[in-house]
Design a protein around this nucleic acid. Structure first.
Lengths: 211, 211
DNA sequence: GACATGCTTGGACCGGCGGTCCAATACTCG
DNA sequence: CGAGTATTGGACCGCCGGTCCAAGCATGTC
């Protein structure tokens, strides 16, 4: 009864489509971060209403999973190291994807990663059940490292430089505990390079696999 | 002006405290899952209002981080293997903690894990910068694997048995692609044991650092 | 014992979210 | 040209996290 439908709506000339919506979502995610992706923001971006969006997309999760998949799909690389580094850099550039990938192993993006890692391992001569174990270890490591790095990257994006972020984190750690290990880690944090450390981890796993 | 304060409130006999609130939050998380944790659910559980909760806790994130920390704090183990397995089992029992740990590297629970892993590595004779790299790799692997496993455990908890879940996932995978790797993986999924595979990953890591 | 001060409590309130529904329009095909 | 279908936009719903505040209790001071 209180329903009061507004003005009537001619069909838009720039056709709405799943692809266009995905594109808008990724742009919002990249500029505003994960918290900025709301269906209202998407509708505003595309000058449309919610109903139109839901006609092409089943839910916000659907949108996020598809966005993450398109990021992973664009990662280049054949070998394990190339692939791992590619995923790392993609997530460095799109931190929201790091959180998304860690969320659900059955989403398309993760399946895609599995397949490529599997192929790379085959190229290394690893097959059978050993390949499953090695693949799982690599995928889990890459996703875990990416998620952790992405959380830092998200913070660092808030106008704070990475250096300041690390210094603040080091101070936090040092203040929280007198433990010798923590102090040493906090000191190392200053010259810390996530990317280098990530690759060191990949090499540890590769060393473990190839023997 | 429309403010209409209700009946007056005597101080409760069962004192509210951060510890009691944390306890209630963990119970809700364990029974309802991560989505079930709302401040409204917490107030209902403790028969109080929101203001009282926020007097002891600064935000919902604060509550989640503290809950995860108390889970990690309860994990037993000294060696790398014991520790890793302990975290895995804790997250198997509390899947919401898996998602939470992957969210932010600077939260207390992750710092706690870092310290214990560092000590375990020292026990293995790994020190200096190599310990940082190895520690990062291990922590990232454990958190990544835990997050992925937790997502599965959350699904499996929805009245569906783990076996059914795996079968459905295998069918999904097989249907999505004709790739040989995917089919092989789907077949392996039937007899799959996350825990065994997790430990296999830890062993790959250990083999990688001890050479 | 009286009084002032500060800690604790519960609920009204606010802005915003994801998702559903539906009337109205534009295409498509016989 | 008429019937049926796909598309569109926005009103609406129930819920959420967080803020605010008036009222009541505990405690310290003289």
């Amino acid at each position: 009864m209180t329903v009061m439908t507004g003005p009537r709506h001619p069909r838009r000339s720039d056709a709405l489509s799943r692809a266009r919506i995905l594109e808008a979502a990724i742009e919002i995610l990249d500029t505003e971060g994960e918290g900025g992706l709301t269906l209202r923001a998407v509708t505003a971006h595309l000058s449309t209403g919610r109903g139109a969006i839901y006609h092409h997309v089943t839910s916000k999760d659907d949108l996020l999973a598809a966005a993450a998949d398109s990021i992973v799909a664009a990662v280049p690389g054949e070998t394990v190291r190339e692939l791992a580094l590619g995923v790392f850099e993609a997530i460095d550039a799109h931190p929201w994807a790091g959180a998304q990938l860690a969320r659900d192993p059955s989403q398309p993006a993760v399946l895609r990663l599995w397949k490529r890692v599997g192929a790379a391992l085959t190229g290394l001569g690893v097959t059978g059940p050993a390949r499953s174990d090695a693949g799982a270890a690599l995928v889990n490591y890459v996703l875990g490292a990416a998620a952790q790095h992405a959380a830092g990257a998200r913070r660092a994006a808030d106008g704070v430089s990475r250096r300041d972020y690390l210094e603040k984190l080091a101070a936090e750690w040092a203040a929280s505990d007198d433990d010798e290990l923590v102090r040493e880690s906090a000191a190392l944090l200053a010259g810390h390079d996530d990317r280098r450390q990530f690759l060191a981890g990949v090499d540890i796993f590769l060393a473990g696999i190839t023997r």
